[in-house]
Structure formats: structure tokens, C-alpha cells
Amino acid sequence: MKIVVCVKQVPDTTEVKINPETNTLIREGVASILNPFDMYAVEEAIRIKEKVGGTVIVLSMGPPQVAEQLKETIAMGADEAILVSDRAFAGSDTLATSYALSKAIEKIADVNLVICGKQAIDGDTAQVGPEIAEKIGIPHLTYVKKIEAISETEITLERMNEDGYERVQMPLPGLITVVKEINEPRLPSLKGMMRSKKAEIPIWSAADIDADPAKCGLNGSPTWVKRIFIPEIKCQGEIFSGEPEEQVKFLVNALVGRKIVV
């Protein structure tokens, strides 16, 4: 079983704050982390490997410094990590990103299963996984919360939707995106950390993966960012004052009196 896990380095958006005076992003002290949703994907891949055997290869696209961070996944138990990095990829939207990653997966070759986190916390698009699958020509399923059974040629799983979940069977090779219900990612082990220290992370350029420059980076990205701005929070409210009892009465009157709550 050969499993590829796609991960992304992201700013820790839970740490990002807006300076209310200048209305700008405060970035100081905001660390770059591996996308938390991707850690569930790494964990699930390692669990599959522990169960049925195989290799776990972590794949990422980003600037060269991501290579060091990918070692975390080796410390957890991934066998190798590969970084796709090239100036040609700058400005990639989800389509161009999925193109580059799909080319890398084709170079890795003979992959049975690709696992992605459900989305990255910086962009929240959830698009790259399904787009990779389409580019390689393999089926995909999203929002997977449980793998019931897996072999080299078939996977049976549960995928979430708004009403509950579906049990679905899919032939492999295929791609899945996983949600956090699926597992609890492990911490690295000491032996893993020592192994990761010594690990070499290959960096693949656009040429290495035989990528068509027209499909990479800005040129390969149909979507453009026109504007980025800080969202405004509307302020319209009425803050009650007085004793708690009074405030509660005001509120109940406002809602029941106006027939909003009946």
C-alpha cells in the first residue's frame, strides 16, 4: 500500500488578530504551522500503514523553508516527505496547485491512496483535494470520518454530510479528504524525531515533475485576487443596562413583545 498525504504550511490563523486602530493584520508572533486538518490525514495514513503495511509519503508545495517543517510528519511516523518548490509555482490558485501536486503524485507513481485534510485554515477552500483527484483521473470522496475497511484496491468508509453520513465504497487508487472526527493525531516520538533529524527532504522543481509552465503559478491560475480587506463588523445594537433582573425583562419584552419569539 502506497499512501501519499498532501499537507500545507499555513500561518496559525487562530493567532492572527486585527489591530482595531489601524485595521490591519497583526502578524507578530504568528507562527507557520502545518495545517491542523492535514495532521489528521497524516495520522490516518500512519494508522493504515500500521494496519495493512505500506509506505507513507508526505507531499507539500511551498517555499523551501517548508522542507524543515515536513520533518514533523516523519517524526510522527511517515516514511518520507517531498517538497515541490519552484518560483514558477508562485501565485498558484487551487487549480494550479492541484496541477503541480498531481504531477508530483504521478512522479511518485503507483500510489494507491491520496489523503488530504478537509481544508487548509488559511484559505478554507477545500478544493485542492478533489481537483488533484480529477487531474490524476482517480475517484475521490470528501469529509471522511471513518475508514471501515481498506485494501490496495478498495476502500469502504463513512463520509459526513449535513444530515448524517453515508457509507460508501470506492475502488482504489483514489483520494479522500478527512475531517477531524476521524482520529486524534499522535505526537512525535523520540525515535521518530531522531530519524527526522537525519531525513533528507527532496525538493522537486517544476522541471523535475515535468510541469507545463503554462499550467503553473499565476499563468495556470484562472482566479485572481482583486482586493483583500478587513471585514467590517456592523454596529447597531442596544446594550441594556441596570440590574440583571431589569436587563432580562427588557430582553424578553423586546423579543416576545415584538412577536419575534412566540
Binding site: 499522535r186 505526537l187 512525535p188 516520538s189 523520540l190 525515535k191
Partner: peptide, 11 residues
């Protein structure tokens, strides 16, 4: 179990 998985019992 977490300490065991992290190899800390053997340091």
C-alpha cells in the same frame, strides 16, 4: 500511553 508512544520511558 502517550509517554510510552513518545519513547520517553526508555530515555
Amino acid at each position: 500511553k502517550i509517554l510510552a508512544d513518545a519513547d520517553l520511558f526508555g530515555v
